[in-house]
Design a protein around this nucleic acid. Structure first.
Lengths: 130, 130
DNA sequence: TTGTCTGTTATATAATTGATATAACAGTTA
DNA sequence: TAACTGTTATATCAATTATATAACAGACAA
């Protein structure tokens, strides 16, 4: 069951999008797997239908899920989109301030990389950690 | 000279905060160094005084800068705050979705770590890259 | 003392975003 | 026919972002 933090400064629709992506990264969700309807998921999570729809629309734009008008929502059966140049550029822009502050606070390069490694292991093992 | 992207979805005050932190990480700014007054910096950047003030207040809260009522603003002369548990927790929370999507898009663990390494080298060399 | 600079505080406004609430539409399926 | 699907259209409300003025109190120089 997906857990959301309604008190977080991270928007709900963004948390939901991230949870689904993390589910795919951990192989708890695989290509072709169905996702709940916007109304069902909204009710299960106790949030609004449009909030779920917003997350789904973003995932659809990125090619991570497919939405068939009345058939439902599924993880892209053809697999995930590639990490192309535009994605890598965006990734770097988002990583940079995080790494900057870590260095700023005296963390060593190996220490930071070690944390990244640890997080990636957690993700692959499907650790919720929340 | 600090460059801001007024069209970015990242708030201006956050961009400014990040630029200053990056300046410290790259040792272009050092403990004890003075920063411009809120009014001067605002005028130089073509933004509002309160936007600069907001960035300064956040940096002050984190112990990264000191603000003396009429003396001015300086990089914390006693050095940077430590990367304590609460910071590391926050850092992990922010890294996790970025790393998740990278894995999701088929990037390998070494590939991702290699990008992190590259970004950290750029930071240390004071590369603006913008 | 006067003037100017400093950070700070207080309002006010406007645009945008996040989230919710209803309602309706068009196609599918039981 | 009835129930479900994603989608679209409004509307409302709160919070955030950024701006604009204005004033205050302490410091410092002429």
């Amino acid at each position: 069951m997906i857990m959301l933090d309604l008190q977080s400064e991270t928007p709900i629709y963004m948390q939901l999008k991230n949870k689904i992506i993390e589910g795919i990264a951990s192989k708890q969700l695989n290509p072709g797997d169905p996702l709940p309807s916007v109304r069902n998921l909204a009710q299960d999570l106790g949030i609004n239908m449009h909030t779920v729809n917003k997350a789904y629309q973003l995932l659809k734009q990125d090619g991570i899920i497919h939405i068939h008008r009345q058939k439902g929502v599924v993880i892209n059966p053809d697999g995930m989109p590639e990490a192309d140049d535009s994605y890598v550029t965006l990734l770097k822009e988002q990583l940079r301030p995080l790494l900057s502050e870590s260095i700023c606070r005296g963390m060593g390069e190996e220490e930071i990389l070690s944390y990244c490694k640890g997080i990636m292991e957690e993700i692959k093992k499907g650790g919720d950690k929340t």
